[in-house]
Measured scan of single mutants.
Amino acid sequence: GTEIELESKNGQREHYTATSEDEARKIIEKAVRRGIKRIELRGASEQLIRDMQEIAKQIGLQYRTDGSL
């Protein structure tokens, strides 16, 4: 699965493990709508990382991946 670590603007951290790319995408989209400061992805697919970079650029988000592409 993909591990997703979120940090909201007030510094609250949340951790999710998505079993599918679809689920990961839903978690990320929800977080973005809620207003999130930072997202870290571990074990994400190349496609998901590309999507994440696109989203991050659009809304000026900090993100990090573990680089295991």
Rank of each mutant, 00 (worst) to 15 (best):
Y63A: 05
Y63K: 03
R25A: 03
E40Y: 13
I4Y: 01
E3T: 09
E54P: 02
E40T: 14
E46I: 13
I39Q: 00
E46Q: 11
S68G: 08
Q58I: 13
G11T: 01
E21T: 10
K30P: 01
A18T: 11
A44Q: 02
G43I: 01
R38M: 07
T19P: 06
A31N: 02
G67Q: 07
T65K: 06
K57H: 12
Q62C: 15
A31R: 02
L48K: 00
Q53I: 15
K9W: 11
E5F: 14
R42A: 05
A31C: 06
R25N: 01
E40V: 15
G60T: 04
R64V: 15
E29A: 12
I36H: 01
L41K: 00
T2C: 13
I36F: 09
G35C: 06
G35D: 05
E5Q: 08
R42Q: 08
K9H: 13
E14Y: 09
D51E: 11
K9N: 12
R13M: 09
E7T: 13
G11K: 02
I27Q: 01
A56D: 01
A24T: 03
R38V: 06
R38N: 04
D66M: 02
L69E: 10
G43E: 03
R38D: 03
D66H: 06
D22G: 07
R13E: 03
R50G: 04
V32C: 09
R38L: 06
Q58S: 08
I4R: 01
A24M: 05
G43N: 14
K57T: 14
T19E: 09
L69D: 11
A24W: 02
K26P: 01
G1A: 14
K26W: 09
G43M: 04
R64L: 15
L41H: 00
G1N: 13
T65W: 06
S68W: 14
M52V: 15
I59T: 13
Y16W: 09
T19F: 11
A56I: 09
G1W: 14
I59W: 15
D66T: 04
T2A: 05
I59C: 15
E40R: 12
Q58Y: 06
R38Y: 11
T2G: 05
I39H: 00
D66N: 05
A44C: 07
E14R: 06
D51I: 13
Y63G: 06
I28Y: 02
S8P: 04
D22V: 07
E21M: 06
R50N: 08
E7I: 12
R34P: 04
E5N: 10
M52R: 00
H15F: 12
R33C: 13
G1T: 14
I28L: 10
K30T: 11
L6R: 00
T19N: 13
I36W: 03
T65I: 12
E54Q: 12
E29T: 06
T17F: 13
E14Q: 08
E5V: 14
L48Q: 01
G43L: 03
R64Y: 15
R25D: 00
S68Q: 10
R64W: 15
R50M: 07
T17R: 10
G35Y: 03
L69F: 15
L6N: 01
K26M: 12
G35K: 03
T2N: 02
A24K: 00
R50Q: 08
I4Q: 01
Q62D: 14
D51A: 11
Q53F: 10
K30W: 12
I55P: 00
L48M: 06
L61K: 04
A44V: 04
R33I: 11
K9T: 13
S68D: 08
S8Q: 09
I27L: 04
I36K: 01
T2W: 10
I55R: 03
Q58L: 10
S20E: 03
I4D: 01
R38A: 06
I55H: 04
Q58N: 08
I39K: 00
G1M: 13
I27F: 11
I4K: 01
R13H: 13
D51Y: 14
G60K: 06
K30L: 13
L41Q: 00
K26I: 10
A18Q: 04
Y16R: 03
I27C: 04
I59K: 07
E3I: 10
K9D: 13
T2M: 12
M52L: 15
E46F: 04
K9Y: 12
G1K: 14
D22K: 08
R33L: 13
R13W: 11
R64F: 15
E23R: 02
D51H: 12
R34S: 08
R13F: 09
I55E: 01
E5M: 15
L69S: 11
T65Y: 06
R13L: 13
I28M: 05
A56E: 03
I27Y: 10
D66P: 04
K30N: 14
L6M: 08
D22L: 06
M52W: 04
E3A: 07
H15N: 10
S45R: 02
E14V: 08
A44S: 03
G35V: 01
G60P: 04
S68P: 07
T65C: 15
G67F: 04
L48Y: 01
D51R: 07
K57I: 11
G1C: 14
V32L: 14
S68H: 08
K37T: 09
Q47D: 09
E3W: 13
E14L: 07
E21A: 06
S45P: 04
G35P: 03
K26V: 09
L48N: 01
T2H: 04
T17K: 10
T2Q: 03
L61R: 03
T2L: 13
L48V: 03
E3Y: 15
I59H: 15
L41S: 00
N10I: 05
E14I: 12
L6C: 07
I39P: 00
G67K: 03
I49W: 07
G11R: 01
T2K: 01
G67H: 06
G35E: 05
E29H: 07
Q62A: 10
K57Y: 07
E54K: 08
R25E: 00
K26F: 10
Y16G: 00
M52I: 15
L41D: 00
R13G: 02
E40I: 14
Q62R: 09
Q47H: 07
A24G: 02
A56R: 04
S68N: 09
E29Q: 10
E54N: 09
I27G: 00
S68I: 11
I55T: 03
Q47M: 05
A56G: 06
S68E: 10
K30C: 14
R34M: 11
M52T: 09
G43H: 09
V32W: 04
K57D: 11
H15R: 09
A44D: 00
L48H: 01
K9C: 15
R64N: 15
K37E: 05
N10Y: 10
E3D: 09
T17I: 14
G43W: 07
D66G: 04
I39R: 00
G1V: 14
R64C: 15
Q47V: 06
A18Y: 07
E46C: 13
E3K: 12
E3H: 13
R33W: 06
A31E: 02
T19L: 14
L6I: 15
E23G: 04
L41W: 02
R50Y: 04
Q58D: 08
I39S: 00
L6K: 01
E23W: 03
H15M: 10
G43V: 02
S20C: 04
M52G: 00
G67C: 15
Y63E: 07
E54R: 08
K26S: 11
I39W: 03
D22S: 09
T19C: 14
R25I: 09
G43F: 09
E3Q: 09
